[in-house]
């Protein structure tokens, strides 16, 4: 082995690692929560109604899934920087800025996957809800319930995109740690870039393993929910 895997606590001790995990979760969960509240009504609207330009809107949503995260970070930083239009709020290099950029990155994923889930609900099921005396709201609720597995998958996919993303939060968050070793805007991913650059591979590996467990856990949860959905259908 060209480096020893003896695990030394990093400079700030284990509080450093724990605070990084907490910042990661706080930023990504908030971004995904807000994005879900924003994306779901739009997915329902686009899935429900026919309007001119619907195909273009759908294409834009799908294209958004491929946004390069560094470009998103750059644009968000420009908006939030002192000279930018939102500069008065003084939010550059804060967790809020990271939430904003992860929101932008997670939204196309959540919107696109939940849109296809909503669209896969048969017209005949909507008709049945209407014909049984349902209002438009009742029909909407039925569609959400029918698409529930797809919507949960969408949220988990959005979380996967957010938690493992590094480019934009590095730019807008600044990867800041307080002098006492507590993370301010340093997350699992951005911490790994620092640890790798400084040659502290052990800490980097621990952080990487934690990130992997989180991402794998979310993926496992997603496929378990999907298989549960299939199981209900078949028996």
């Amino acid at each position: 082995m060209f480096f020893s895997l003896q695990l030394q606590p990093p400079d700030g001790g284990w509080t450093y690692v724990v605070s990084i995990i907490l910042v990661s979760l706080e930023v990504s969960l908030t971004a995904v929560g807000l994005s879900t509240l924003f994306s779901l009504p739009i997915a329902l609207f686009v899935g429900f109604t026919d309007f001119p330009g619907k195909r273009i809107v759908t294409a834009v949503i799908n294209t958004g899934m491929g946004f390069p995260s560094v470009v998103v970070g750059l644009v968000v930083l420009m908006l939030l920087s002192n000279s930018g239009p939102l500069g008065t709020f003084d939010r550059a290099f804060t967790p809020q800025a990271m939430i904003a950029s992860q929101f932008v990155l997670a939204t196309p994923v959540i919107m696109s996957v939940s849109l296809s889930a909503v669209e896969s609900v048969e017209q005949s099921v909507r008709d049945a809800a209407f014909a049984m005396g349902g209002t438009d709201l009742d029909v909407g609720i039925v569609v959400i319930k029918e698409a529930r597995y797809g919507i949960v998958t969408a949220v988990l996919a959005g979380f996967g995109r957010a938690i493992s993303e590094v480019g934009s939060i590095l730019i807008v968050g600044g990867n800041i740690v307080f002098s006492d070793g507590e993370s301010y805007t340093r997350t699992l991913t951005t911490a790994i870039t620092v640890e790798a650059r400084q040659g502290r591979y052990e800490v980097g590996l621990v952080l990487g393993a934690i990130l992997l467990v989180l991402v794998l856990g979310v993926n496992w949860l997603g496929s378990w929910i999907r298989s549960k959905g299939r199981g209900e259908r078949s028996g």
Binding site: E122, S124, D127, A131, V142, K145, E232, R233
Partner: peptide, 12 residues
């Protein structure tokens, strides 16, 4: 109330 050609039941 109405019954359709396809049963159109909910996943419940």
């Amino acid at each position: 109330s109405m019954v359709f050609q396809e049963p159109s039941l909910f996943n419940a």
